[in-house]
Structures are given as C-alpha cells and as structure tokens.
Design a protein around this nucleic acid. Sequence first.
DNA 1: TGCCACTACTGCGTAAAGCGCAGTAGTGTG
DNA 2: CACACTACTGCGCTTTACGCAGTAGTGGCA
Lengths: 114, 114
Amino acid sequence: MDSSQLLKGVLDLAVLAVLDERDGYGYDVVRRLREAGLHDVGDASVYGTLRRLFKAGALTSYVVASDEGPHRKYYGLNEVGRSMYASSARTWTSFAATMASLLKEGHSDPAPRS
Amino acid sequence: MDSSQLLKGVLDLAVLAVLDERDGYGYDVVRRLREAGLHDVGDASVYGTLRRLFKAGALTSYVVASDEGPHRKYYGLNEVGRSMYASSARTWTSFAATMASLLKEGHSDPAPRS
DNA sequence: TGCCACTACTGCGTAAAGCGCAGTAGTGTG
DNA sequence: CACACTACTGCGCTTTACGCAGTAGTGGCA
C-alpha cells in the first residue's frame, strides 16, 4: 500500500497537530513531521497544506528574518485552527477506531504485532 | 473534516477486511462496511474498489444467481489478496500509531472522549 | 571570487481515488 | 403495469499529495 494515499485528508490534521504544539515555518514543519514518523511526506505537500489552511482562515502568519538563510514564514493556530484541530482529531480518532475494529474481527492471520 | 478524504487509500484495506471475514458481492460489502461504522461510504466507491482489486489480481470472482434480484458477483480473497491484506493492515496500524502519537503530544485540550 | 550546499518558499502539472449521478436489469408487490 | 428494491457499470468531477522546476538568501571552500 502506497502510504502517500493514507495521508489524504490527514495531512491537515498532522500539520495542525505540530502547529498546536508550537508555531513553525514550512521547512520546520516538514522536519517535525518527518521526525514524528511521517518520513515520506513531501515538502510541496506540506507547503500546500499550510497555504490551504491559511486560506481557510485557520492559521495566523508572520514573517521573521533569519540570519542563516532566507526569511521564514511562521504559521500558528488561531481560534478557528484550534477548533478545527479538536474536531478533526475527534473525527480521526473515531475513524481509526472503526478501522481497528474492522481489522481485528475475523482476520486470517496477522495478530497485529509491533 | 470531510471524512470522505480519510478513506483515501484505506477503503482497499476495509474491503479486504470484510472479504477476509467472508466472501461477498458488491451490494453486500457496501452494507457490511456501513454496519461496521463507515456510514457514508459511497456504493460507487466500493464497486470501483472491488474492480480495482480484482484487476490487481487480489480477488477471485464468481457469479451466483439470486432468487430475489439480479445475479450477484461474489468476490473473495486469493493468496495475493490475503498477503496484500496482511501487509496493508500492518502499514495502516503503524501509520495510525504515528498519528496517535502526533495527536497526543502537546495538544491544547481534547482528552479524546467518546 | 566563483561554485556549491543548505535553507526556504512558490507554482505547475499529474495521478490516485472517492463520490454523485445516470443508466441497465432482474424480481416481487399493489 | 408502474414502482420499489436489489445489483452492477460507466462517466465526469473534485480533492489532494507529489515531483519537479524555479527563485532567493546565506555561508563554506578551493
């Protein structure tokens, strides 16, 4: 299974999650997502998601000069973003639970072992 | 969050899961997925997924006459399908774990309550 | 001082996949 | 005989993740 398809609709949530922890700029969000386990996430996907979320009114944005490269466009959650995060997290959690129950009933082998 | 996006890449797994439990025809698979909690899954999505999986060599197919409607095209897992199921289930499980850990660190409120 | 690596972001075109909807058929009911 | 329910197919749309190219700023190195 191509894990890129698994991200559909979930990358928003992942980005909201890292921004909820602390404000970040694109390049930084990419790194944090990769460190969190989303090793294959494409940078263009993250930048696109940030722009989309910003356009949807979920993020604040401010530019900060950097002394080790170009300026950085920081993003942070606003009220809309936080409530979107909370609601998306709930949706995801219940969806994941549904999938988990689907997987465990009547499966032929795989005793999902770490 | 539009839950239809969450299905991307996961509907295959869900379909494999219900077929692993027992062979089924399209209409039946739709019903079983909905009963399992995927209330909003579209029938065209399921039929499309079944065709795609069959074309990919993961499913067997046989037609059975029905005395309460048109014939039914049953699908079942073959060896390819079973190993695809096992591998997809593992991928999903680890992906879900990654997401869960992302969600729980540093979130502002939501103690995910049912 | 010219080249390269790393940082940081934007924009474009592509492909995957779920969905709505229309259409085709078979069966049973009023 | 029209209608509802079952069962499946095909078409076009939309969302979204991705690859890639391009633009820029900074610093290291020969």
